[in-house]
């Protein structure tokens, strides 16, 4: 059904963002026009819908689809109302024959309860935000999960970057440089680790000191793989004085003579 321009402008102002969905719009129409749900003027409601959909068309088709579903429901109710009523002679049958609008109204009522509760929730949210906790200055009130690898959207990255830039007081004028991607392979990591261990003094080097900052996940993994491989090949020694204590790595060739002698004595 097409409405002329004049008719459309006569429609009550419909702010697109004000509605959460078809149910919300229907509630609005019911309230605004004091429509009696027992006799919903389907034609009129459908016209409003069409006007609404035309505005939505260019934005989001999924939303339009949802509105079609409700329009179809309304039409179905209307057509069921128009069907000649079957003989209501028997009382027992009366219960079976429910008003076709009952389900819709029940849905609307339940939806309204949630809508009413949203106001309460929003108040609670506001009240809770009056409280500040330890650690909040650093973390804010985000409750956000750490991002899973590969799931971060470009938009989220951009937002985070903007926030960081804002926090650091840098305005839009960012200096751009290129960053070379570093190649990490097992053999490179092994060579690097071996070099570190060999250049350490006689008591060895702390495992923690073998990692270069900033820590990068793939580098940590490679370093551990390299460590395991070098241990297997007997090219380095690892020792730990007690459980959970720090781990020392040393070169078997330069291990202190005294220690070897001590070990032999024990044997």
């Amino acid at each position: 059904m097409n409405l002329s321009k004049a008719q459309v402008t006569n429609l009550p102002p419909v702010a697109l963002s004000a509605f959460e969905g078809p149910l919300d719009l229907l509630l609005h129409l019911i309230r605004e026009h004091k429509i009696n749900i027992a006799d919903i003027p389907i034609v009129q409601v459908t016209d409003y819908y069409c006007a609404y959909l035309r505005e939505m068309e260019s934005f989001n088709l999924t939303i339009a689809g949802e509105f079609f579903v409700l329009a179809a429901t309304l039409l179905e109710i209307k057509s069921r109302m128009l069907l000649p009523k079957q003989a209501q002679a028997k009382d027992s049958e009366e219960e079976d024959e429910e008003d076709p609008r009952k389900e819709l109204v029940e849905r609307l009522l339940e939806y309204q309860r949630y809508k009413a509760f949203v106001q309460t929730l929003s108040d609670w949210e506001g009240d809770r935000r009056q409280l500040y906790f330890r650690g909040q200055a650093e973390y804010g009130d985000l409750y956000e999960l750490p991002v899973e690898f590969g799931t971060l959207s470009a938009e989220a990255l951009r937002k985070t970057l903007m926030r960081l830039l804002q926090n650091s007081g840098i305005d839009g004028s960012v200096e751009v440089t290129s960053v070379r991607r570093q190649k990490v392979t097992l053999s490179l990591a092994m060579a690097a680790l071996l070099r570190k261990v060999k250049s350490a003094h006689s008591e060895g080097i702390l495992l923690d000191d073998c990692f270069t900052l900033p820590l990068i996940r793939v580098e940590i993994i490679m370093m551990f793989l390299a460590l395991l491989e070098l241990l297997r090949q007997g090219k380095i020694l690892a020792r730990q004085n007690s459980g959970l204590d720090e781990i020392w790595l040393s070169d078997p060739a330069t291990i202190m003579v005294a220690e070897v002698e001590h070990a032999m004595e024990v044997d």
Partner: peptide
């Protein structure tokens, strides 16, 4: 939780569907 909005309109709607 009482449904939000004009209670009159809603009770009218209820009446029309359920009880009337």
């Amino acid at each position: 939780i009482s449904p939000e909005g004009d209670p009159e309109a809603m009770s009218k709607a209820l009446e029309a569907v359920g009880l009337e």
